[in-house]
Design a protein around this nucleic acid. Structure first.
Lengths: 202, 202
DNA sequence: TGTAAACTACACTAACTAGTTTACATCTGG
DNA sequence: CCAGATGTAAACTAGTTAGTGTAGTTTACA
């Protein structure tokens, strides 16, 4: 354990990881080249291969690093003493915040771009990714159990809830590179989603 | 105009188009190779170049062919003499039918795979693609104008309506290659969407 | 100042790419 | 049955790729 600063080697490694994630994001796994990654990292190609034995290994390392970045999904518990509207509003905002977190969309883009052409290679990444939704399922399950929402199970509720949010704050950004909607639009979306759940399930 | 059967040339051309669309679907534009396309079509590479001057031209020709296949969106008019529930049910079924049409998902996959890495090259294809939704907007606009639905405008309604359907019948199929839900599940989805619109907007 | 680890540039292999050329074969209409 | 259109294989250009090997240089540190 060297508490010093950062060894030269660590600096180089970080530069490689940074450059590689840009290249993979721009071009996808197959079209990104090790030469370009080395060039962008301002490092010799040999150094890249000293840190990572192959392109595959570099890609996996980056995927892992990206996935870890996203493990910050705290579960909001259902509270009987707070209004549904208020709690749902918080849930929507929480979800939007997650989707707009720096790196989330970029990570999702890399994963999905690869998934389109070889679904099997990233099953685990996809399942990790969809864990994002489990705290939501928890909240809805608790709300149903408490009788605050009337539904057989939470599955369709969670899908319905996230589908509308993603239609505005995920898919267009992922595929067309659109910016997030304005705050006014976000407020409108939030209100619509909250209203949708309350009117349909109480 | 030869009304005969199909000239040899036409047969070869069809084989090339068929093979190329498989290759483009599997690997995307850049990774699909003309050699592999020729091999799959059981045709010499020179013949491919006799029919299409370049890889780009072959790709465009296929895109065009695919897009034309999708121009079957008839507009259902709003009818004051029929129940909302019945009409909405028809709309959902119409939408699901469109999404499950042979080729729709495959076409969307090719377009979106390219869009992820170079959004500008296929703006027109994307806009063509989203025209799919305009008859829906028409119906909702008419329903609002007739006072059958209470909303400022149809925009958020259309998004909400399609978002839930796509969450079940488009995105999972496009990205993870999942099959369409069972008929029972489709019925449940239909019912949920119809209920959602009626409870929130009447 | 010496040493070892890490980095460097650069050349190289073997494979793949889009697209062209050549010389030959085969099908089709009249 | 033959002329002309069309298709064929295979070699070729010129470029890119992942990955390796080498010989020399920089850095950290004692």
């Amino acid at each position: 354990m060297k508490e010093k600063k950062l060894t030269r080697s660590e600096l180089k490694r970080a530069a490689i990881v940074e450059a590689a994630s840009v290249e993979f994001q721009n071009k996808g796994f197959s079209l990104a080249s090790m030469d370009d990654i080395a060039k962008r990292a301002d490092v010799s190609k040999r150094t890249v291969y000293n840190h990572f034995p192959s392109k595959e290994a570099l890609f996996s390392a980056i995927m892992l690093e990206m996935m870890e970045m996203l493990c910050a999904f705290e579960s909001l518990p259902f509270r009987a003493d707070e209004s549904l509207a208020s709690q749902l509003t918080q849930l929507v905002q929480h979800e939007i915040q997650l989707l707009s977190a720096k790196g989330f969309i970029d990570t999702a883009r890399v994963i999905i771009a690869e998934a389109i052409h070889k679904p099997e290679l990233i099953q685990d990444a996809m399942s990790e990714f969809s864990k994002q939704e489990s705290p939501l399922a928890n909240w809805f399950n608790q709300a149903i159990a408490a009788g605050a929402l009337k539904a057989k199970d939470s599955e369709i509720l969670v899908v319905q809830f996230t589908a509308v949010i993603k239609a505005y704050c995920f898919w267009p950004q992922l595929i067309q590179g659109e910016p997030l909607p304005s705050q006014a639009k976000l407020d409108e979306i939030t209100q619509t989603v909250v209203e949708m759940i309350i009117k349909q399930y109480t």
